[in-house]
Design a protein around this nucleic acid. Structure first.
Lengths: 328, 328
DNA sequence: ATGAAAGCGCTAACAG
DNA sequence: CTGTTAGCGCTTTCAT
């Protein structure tokens, strides 16, 4: 690889001039500039960003770290982030922690050691507060989807609002016995949605029955198992609310296996989308993932540009998508 | 951020000793080591990888650059790469080119300027050969899924074999009139699969009719449009083969909209998986994506360790997944 | 407008 | 075993 030194030598100027030619062309005489540029072209010289970053103490890069890159929700957050970031001339590094706290930590360390300027951060579930490394690093970051408290810029979905859309839809259609397949009470996200269900069941005058409430991990398996439980125990719900797409997928599989037609025999509504090939489509709320990623990144860029101010939190409203076909 | 200098000062030693304590602990006296480590802990010092990389001329990082991160096939390649890479102590940077050649070029430049050591490369469709920047960079790379010629380590799916599995399955079930919804003839991948269809139609004694052959972009829209064409023109195929998941998705949507029950009225088989929520499931072949990503990365690591030898190409056999429910 | 020189944080001879 | 020093490739005063 050619270095700035090589270019300088071949152009018969000092390295300083080459550097200027690249970073502030107007500050070098037209003729010298021409000579330098021609050498740059000839050698396909490209400045070593490591060296540059080391010198200027900023890498013009940010990372987005997500728990599960195969989750369409996270994916769209990434896409949103990527869009505003590349427009701002930053490079985006994507890291997948696979819902694994250890791996998250390793990734964080690595990113920080590589001197990223900022971070769009979707924490692994188990973390209830900012990892120590991150706190010490003191780089701008914005937390997305899973809150870590009021100390950081945060972009969230309105979970309560989302559950409300789903339940009010079911209530309007005349359902009274609506079961919940929820996430873990130990995670903030799981608890928040479950709690919303509990509160809203009353508001919409649905049957308030603890046996209708099931919770487990945010996995397909848990969704499958909890759905079976509901049926096996003869609880005969008219409708089921799953608070995450993985839970919904598992539940749908279980119902189908048990011979229930969804939604004819049993209506299923889901928080998050399940893919548009499910036929007939499932009523669900969709988080504004792309927009959330974009907004988070805008916040981040502001901080990177030195904008001060206390941490902000913004809530995005999930959007309701009705299945065209209704329960008969 | 603390630097190695700070640590040295606080521990009352030279920076060299600190460096040794980190990179070759056995080479420093136990007592000094203890003293240094304690300071490191106290200050949560972490070596600046930019500086280290600049010095040692290797960044211990590789990138995987994919055309579409929301494609499950690409996603699994990433996961496979990630697994073997992190085991080898490398950091993986994921870049999404969004099937956009310009964006790919920008990403490549950026990655190279950041001194990545190697690359797992799934080229954007339109590229028929290695981009100039990459060729000049002379870093180890392995091409996946879309061949760029015999000059590089390459990991591919056996497209011919995959199509063969699908067509022989249809033939065995007694279908004779099998239409093709294929990708663009202008892309190597599209052409290869279409050509396989043409050859194999004869082998399996299926109807050899040019009107049954349609091709377009690898998009949902194209799949939808081509499927409609087949129906609108009264070609009455007994079965349809879509050569990519996006084409399959589009076709399935079209058939459903037109009132066809799949597979009862019309069987659809697809190259690549369409998600396991499609009900009833669609017969398809699945590429060994995870394994391909892993293998590609193993090749790459070998090259990074200096293993010489001429470029290798390995072909992975797609696997057939039968829908449980058969056409009646 | 241009060059010399210092330094970003680290590693690796080399000397002792 | 430890310290001194040069240098990775670049930017940026400070002179000229």
């Amino acid at each position: 690889m050619a270095t700035i030194k090589d270019v300088a030598a071949q152009a018969g100027v000092s390295v300083a001039s080459v550097s200027r030619a690249i970073n502030d062309p107007s500050s070098v005489a037209p003729l010298t500039l021409e000579r330098i540029n021609s050498v740059i072209r000839k050698t396909s010289f490209a400045p070593n960003k490591l060296a540059r970053s080391l010198k200027v103490q900023t890498s013009k890069s940010v990372a987005v770290i997500v728990p599960d890159i195969s989750n369409p929700f996270h994916l769209k957050i990434i896409k949103g982030a990527e869009a505003v970031l590349s427009a701002a001339g930053y490079t985006l590094f994507i890291m997948d922690t696979e819902e694994n706290a250890e791996k998250e930590l390793r990734n964080l360390r690595d990113l920080l050691d590589r001197q990223i300027d900022g971070l769009v951060y979707i924490p692994v579930l188990t973390n209830q507060r900012l990892p120590r490394v991150l706190a010490e690093a003191r780089i701008p970051l914005v937390v997305v989807d899973r809150s870590l408290g009021e100390d950081h810029d945060t972009v969230l979905s309105d979970n309560f609002g989302g559950i409300s859309l789903l339940l009010s839809h079911l209530a309007e259609k005349g359902n009274r016995r609506v079961a919940l397949i929820g996430g873990p009470e130990t995670s903030r996200l799981g608890r928040e949605r479950n709690e919303a269900y509990r509160v809203l069941v009353r508001k919409y005058h649905l049957e308030d029955n603890p046996h209708l409430v099931r919770s487990g991990e945010f996995t397909i398996e848990a969704g499958f198992r909890l759905a079976r439980e509901l049926i096996d125990e003869n609880l005969a719900p008219e409708a089921v609310l799953a608070t995450a797409n993985l839970l919904g997928i598992g539940a749908l599989k279980a119902f189908r296996e048990l011979g229930f037609k969804v939604p004819q025999d049993l209506e299923l509504v889901v928080f998050d989308e399940m893919g548009d090939l499910v036929d007939p489509p499932i009523t669900h709320v969709r988080q504004q993932a792309y927009e959330m990623g974009a907004q988070a990144t805008r916040f981040l860029l502001e901080r990177l540009q030195g904008q001060p101010g206390s941490p902000r939190t913004v809530l995005f409203e999930p959007l309701l998508y009705l299945s065209s076909q209704n329960k008969t």
